[in-house]
Amino acid sequence: MELEKYFDQLDAYHYGRLTGAEKEALESRLQSDPEWKEAWNLYRLSLAALELQQDATVRKTLEKIQQEKGRITPLNRRLMAVAAAVILIVCMTGSWWYAWENYTNQALYQANYSVPAEMNPARMGAGEAASTTLDRGLEAFQNKETEQAVEILETISPDNPEYENARFALGQIFLQTGKAEKAIQYLSPLTGSASTALAAKAEWYMALTLLQSGKSNECVEWLQKIASDPEHPYQEKAEELWRKMDNLWRKLITSFRGTTPTR
C-alpha cells in the first residue's frame, strides 16, 4: 500500500482543513474503500502510539513522585524524631551546663579553695592590736589594703622567724587577687620548707594556684604527689580533686573546647 498517496488527504481531514464536499467525499471513501479505511486506521494508530508514549512518560513520572512520597517518614514518626531531638538537646545542654558549673578550672578551684587559718587575724584576738609585722600585714589585707599589706609583708627579712609565714601570706594574697604567677613565685620555695606543715600547705596551694592559672597538667602532678603521701594533711582533698580532674564531665568540656577550660 502506498501510504504517500493517502497521507495528505488524511492529514487535511484530521486537521479539519477539507471543504464540506471534500470531507463528504473522503468519508464516503473511508466507508467503501478498504485501502483508504486501512490508511486512516494507520494514521490514527500512529497518533495513538505517540499519545500512549506520552501517557507512559507521565505515568512513570507520577509513579516516581509517589514512590518518593512513600519513602518519606510518616508524621507521627517525625514527631517522635522531633521529641527525641528535643530530649537529646535538653539532655546535652543540661549536661554541658552541669559540667561547666562544676568542672571548669575556676569551678574546681573555687570548690577547693579555703582561706588558710594563717591568714585569719582573729588568731590575734578581738580588739587586740597587731603586735608583729606579719600581723600588721595580714590586718592590712583584711582591711582590703592589698598594696599596703604586700609592702608590709615584703619588709620581713629572711632572718625573721616569721619570714616563711609572711611569704606564705604573700602567696595567698596574690592567689586571692588572681595573680597566679606571683603567687607561684612565693609558694614554690615554701614547698621545700623545713616546716613539714607549712610545706604541705604550700604544696596544696601550689596545686590550686596552678589550677587557677590553667596549668592543669602541672596541677595534676602536684596533686599526684600529695595524694601518694598518706601522711599528707591534704592527701584526701588532693585525691578527690585529682579524681575530678580526670572524670568524664571534665573531659566533656576539655574535648569540646580543645583546651583546658579556664572559664
Binding site: 497521507f7 494514521y43 494508530l45 500512529s46 495513538a48 500512549l52
Partner: peptide, 29 residues
C-alpha cells in the same frame, strides 16, 4: 513531520501484530 509520520505508519502497516497490540492498548485507554 510528514516524512516521519509516514515512516511510522509504514512501520505499523508492515507489522500487523504490533499494530493489533497497539490498537488494543488504544481501546483500553
Amino acid at each position: 513531520r510528514r516524512n516521519c509520520h509516514l515512516s511510522l505508519m509504514k512501520y505499523l502497516n508492515e507489522h500487523p501484530m504490533i499494530k493489533q497490540e497497539l490498537k488494543d492498548l488504544w481501546n483500553w485507554k
